[in-house]
Design a protein around this nucleic acid. Structure first.
Lengths: 203, 203
DNA sequence: CCTTTTTGTTATACTGTGTAACAATTGTTT
DNA sequence: AAACAATTGTTACACAGTATAACAAAAAGG
């Protein structure tokens, strides 16, 4: 049986080059608009030959994806444990943890915001989050309200992302614990209530 | 008193050229990805000299903005009348009207979706919608929950846009009247409930 | 009909993407 | 350590798209 991340060690030169390119992109995004960043600029900052970029990534988007995947995996773990909680108290705690996590890695999330010139990235993030919540919504689902579940999970995912964006744009101003409360009330409780009321009508 | 637009009649050639360019962009967006559209392509389809584009728009984004502003003004009117409703029955009717309006002009809204490679456009749309709702939320506002009002109006605006996007991606599948119900329950009622519960805590 | 404005034509500079050939360097194996 | 393999650097080039300039042609308005 072949392993998933197999015994084939990647060349240290390759790891080094890719890391240099990722770091260069990150530092550039923190300085200027993503749309204004060129491949040439990245390779120059990374101290790497121009052509080397194309030997590792087929486009600038791919590099951005790699950077974001790396950084978002931590957040998704938080969201996942949160989605599996049903106790009220635990929900508030987990909501707070999300915003504390973002606070710690705020640079990374500013990148996520800025790089959203590329909408595909946003859509991918939304889908990842929506899938997580859909799983934990499924128990409530009956045949006749599958659409409702789809709408609800999409609604939660997009709302959470929008709330995070709003928070970052407001310099992370209400504290994480307050944002945790807002999250629970405005997004989770609201959606759960709406879903049951919508189901009640179609019953 | 000088009027806003009227007495200075714009040259018919200018009106014609701008209309040709707008139409060309629309027809191209319906065919392919916005990011893959060049100015040269637009001018060729519009049967207009390449340089003429720059005599009217400083960038491709500006042209896109003009196209969307024109098309979205109708939707914003619907949303505005909706935001000023407080009767439950009227709210459902107005919610339905939104989605019926979108159904009628679905081509235009597919453009809005596709052209969101440019996130600035989306942000502008969100802000416009948020301002509308903020006005009608203000009566409920006290000093201590101004933040809550900001969050709430932003939440309503982004949620509505996300719901519209979801609906278009699902081929406008639940009927407009059902979407109107969903809108009322999932977005309006939920948010109102959440705001009052959040205010109650901080009281 | 004459003047003004807009548009078309042609040429040019510039930036960024993407590829190719070959040399130089670094990693791996025996 | 030597031989081999893989990666990276250098240089050159083709190509597409943006943006501007100068001048001729056409259309609008008094």
């Amino acid at each position: 049986m072949p392993n998933k991340t197999p015994p084939v060690k990647t060349d240290p030169r390759v790891r080094r080059t890719r890391r240099l390119l990722r770091d260069a992109l990150v530092s550039l995004i923190l300085e200027k608009d993503f749309a204004a960043i060129s491949i040439k600029e990245i390779t120059e900052r990374a101290d790497v030959a121009y052509i080397t970029f194309f030997r590792h990534y087929e486009s600038l988007d791919r590099l951005l994806m790699e950077v974001l995947d790396e950084g978002l995996s931590g957040l998704l773990i938080h969201i996942e444990t949160l989605a599996n909680q049903f106790e009220t108290s635990a929900l508030e705690t987990e909501g707070r943890l999300i915003f504390e996590y973002i606070e710690q890695k705020s640079d990374l999330f500013r990148i996520l915001l800025k790089s959203q010139s590329v909408i595909r990235v946003r859509k991918k993030v939304v889908q990842n989050i929506a899938v997580i919540f859909k799983k934990s919504c499924m128990p409530l689902a009956r045949l006749d309200n599958l659409v409702t579940v789809n709408i609800a999970s999409n609604h939660i995912a997009t709302s959470l992302l929008s709330l995070i964006e709003w928070w970052l744009e407001n310099n992370m101003n209400p504290s994480p614990s307050e944002m945790g409360r807002v999250y629970k009330s405005l997004i989770i409780d609201s959606t759960v209530g709406a879903v049951s009321s919508l189901s009640a009508v179609s019953r």
